[in-house]
Design a protein around this nucleic acid. Structure first.
Length: 597
RNA sequence: GGGGUCGUAGUUCAGCCCGGUUAGAACGCCGGCCUGUCACGUCGGAAGUCGUGGGUUCAAAUCCCAUCGGCCCCGCCA
């Protein structure tokens, strides 16, 4: 591997992208730059597939046409970056390659130069993403990104964001940037901290979202704001969660939930238009949180399949089955899930499922199989006729169905049934369907009780306005208060969520106090917000979407890493650069930081 | 913090259960030949701390323990 003469710029301009050349370009003289994707050396004739971001084109080097260029081709190897000049020619009939977009033509090269040679690569670029372990791909991410699939994903993500900007611009939204160095706030995820050199012992925090900043912009009068905002949360990773990610952050003055929903649906439609060139069905259906929990055991139900959860509590009243009778006596609920005859679980699978639920959640799973008017299974003979008839009706149980049931506290059982529903759907491969099934989940509760912290916590966030119809419940039954909050779910994933905010400082203090934040704490942590709200703050509300999840949606991938240029591993490490790393002791000293391990 | 799974030439994998030849294959790489290939073909060649450390054994890629790393999941993520 030897570099040619030093030249910081290509010897001739690029007239075209390789992958864009077509039959109508025949006869043109072109200049191309690109990587050697493959080289087929016949001793005299040499073919090279030259690749750039738009695709491949075949180059032909004939020593009788130009022997210097032929020599260059002979020296080239895979992934050398070369520049060529030559003539686009139609291929003869028998040599056309229908597999290739550029397969009707080739470039007869008359001049060639190696601009940058390459070591043999750790993995093949053309082999698809399965051709190398992700560990290797991440270490050489810059090479991994040369793959057509990654080029496509990142380009499509870009198109999706163009769709976002085009739509929001058309609706009069102004894009405003907010600080990355900000302050730590209580509530929410763990913060990433940044020490301040000029203020020893003090720290900035990276924003978990620009929530409060966008509210302040409403006070300032930018009555329609948006931002593609980078956000940071120091929590454990998942396939769809990275420590830093992007949000489409939107806020509007005077918005009602319907206004936000309308803007958001228009935005999603624009994304589909720009990224995929297709339209989607609107408006999206809406469902209340309580209905979603009751029917699907989830606040982001996957609507691509049925398997709905059934509430069997009333149907089992007065049952002779001991475990259920005891549960009902404690005021607990019984939920069931009906598996049609096409989806059979073996006795062994049912036993394993029962055991998994008992060991993980401490709840028992009961099951019966329905045949002609009778039930089979371990508990079948303990269930009396009247409740069997009621359950059959409520669960619409028919012959050959399997009914899975769990009893327990409603707030434990419903999510568990929801999980079970997803597990079974995965097992029987029901989570498919080409059409995106969007769903607005509305009427979220304001609060939930945290066992761990022994207090109320905000379901959305502490700045969310309650539904005015529920105001009188705030003090007596806070858990029953609905918020003006809404989430957009797609195929079982949360794509975004938002709310109408509180714009009255006294009312905000009231909500803080319900959350266990007293007046002093509120002013010391959120004084700037409370102050701002006291200077003519207009009513406002908004929403935020996960850009990365939207990119996953339009790229049809299950891994966020496939739509991010430089993602981190599950241990939040960048395998390529080695971040996070130790730092020079002098840096720590300047920051007045001592590391204790 | 916890559960599962994987780690063997540059790459993808086999071998591991049931310990015992020189640890194999394909792709890639290097060299020769080749004027219509397109995953070119063909002949030859080089290439391995079997993730790391310890243990059991006459003998460990193989069995045991620990540890590191990738991935998936639970907890966590207002």
């Amino acid at each position: 591997m030897r570099r040619g003469k030093y030249s910081p710029v290509p010897p001739w301009p690029r007239t075209d992208y390789c992958g864009r050349l077509r039959a109508e370009d025949a006869g043109r003289e072109v200049g191309l730059w690109g990587w050697v994707a493959s080289r087929r050396d016949h001793g005299r004739l040499i073919f090279i597939d030259l690749r750039d971001r738009e695709g491949l084109v075949q180059l032909v080097f004939n020593p009788e046409h130009d022997s210097d260029a032929h020599q260059v081709a002979g020296a080239a190897r895979a992934e050398y970056y070369i520049a060529v000049r030559g003539k686009v020619v139609r291929r003869t009939e028998g040599t056309i390659n229908r597999e290739l977009a550029t397969g009707e033509i080739e470039v007869l090269v008359s001049e060639a130069e190696i601009l940058s040679p390459s070591q043999p690569l750790p993995f093949a670029i053309g082999g698809g993403v399965e051709s190398a372990a992700e560990e290797v791909r991440l270490k050489y991410r810059y090479l991994d990104l040369r793959r057509a699939e990654m080029q496509r994903n990142l380009t499509r993500r870009h198109q999706a964001l163009r769709g976002v900007r085009a739509w929001l611009d058309s609706q009069g939204f102004v894009e405003i940037e907010t600080p990355i160095l900000w302050r730590a706030t209580p509530e929410g995820a763990r913060d990433y901290l940044v020490p301040s050199r000029v203020n020893p012992g003090k720290f900035y925090a990276l924003p978990q979202s620009p929530q409060l900043l966008k509210q302040l912009l409403m006070v300032s009068g930018f009555d329609r704001y948006y931002q593609i905002a980078r956000c940071f949360r120091d929590e454990d990773l998942r396939a769809n969660r990275q420590p830093e990610f992007s949000q489409i952050d939107i806020e509007m003055t005077g918005a009602r939930p319907d206004d936000i929903i309308e803007i958001a649906e228009g935005m999603i439609a624009s994304i589909y238009e720009f990224a995929l060139g297709r339209s989607i069905v609107r408006p999206f259906p809406r469902m209340s949180y309580s209905e979603a929990m009751e029917r699907f055991g989830s606040d982001k139900p996957d609507l691509r399949f049925g398997l709905e959860v059934k509430n069997l509590t009333a149907a089992f009243s007065g049952t002779s089955l001991r475990v259920f009778a005891d549960a009902l006596g404690r005021g607990e609920s019984i939920y069931g899930l009906v598996l049609p005859p096409a989806y059979q679980l073996s006795r062994r699978e049912l036993d394993e499922l029962t055991e998994a639920i008992r060991s993980q959640k401490g709840l028992g799973l009961a099951w019966v199989k329905s045949s002609d008017g009778s039930w089979q299974g371990p508990i079948a003979r303990h269930v009396g006729e009247p409740e069997r008839a009621r359950v059959t009706e409520v669960a619409a149980l028919s012959r050959g169905d399997t009914l899975l049931m769990i009893a327990g506290q409603q707030d434990k059982v419903r999510p568990l049934m929801g999980e079970l529903r997803l597990q079974l759907a995965a097992k029987f491969d029901l989570r498919r369907g080409n059409e995106p099934r969007f769903l607005w989940v509305i009427d979220f509760p304001m609060f939930e009780y945290s066992e761990e912290e022994q207090r109320l916590v905000a379901v959305h966030h502490p700045f969310t306005a309650p539904n005015p119809d529920d105001l009188e419940l705030l003090d007596k039954k806070p858990l029953e208060v609905r918020a003006l909050a809404y989430d957009l779910a797609l195929n079982g994933q949360e794509m975004g969520g938002g709310s109408i905010r509180i714009h009255d400082p006294e009312f905000q203090l009231k909500i803080f106090s319900l959350l266990g934040i007293d007046r002093d704490q509120a002013f010391s942590k959120f004084g700037f917000l409370l102050d701002a709200l006291s200077y003519g703050a207009p009513p406002h509300g908004g929403i935020a979407f996960g850009v990365d999840r939207i990119a996953m949606m339009v790229c049809e991938t299950d891994s966020l890493r496939d739509v991010m240029a430089f993602p981190k591993t599950q241990k939040a490490v960048d395998l390529m650069s080695g971040a996070p790393s130790e730092v020079d002791p002098r840096q720590l000293e300047e920051l007045s930081i001592k590391v204790v391990l």
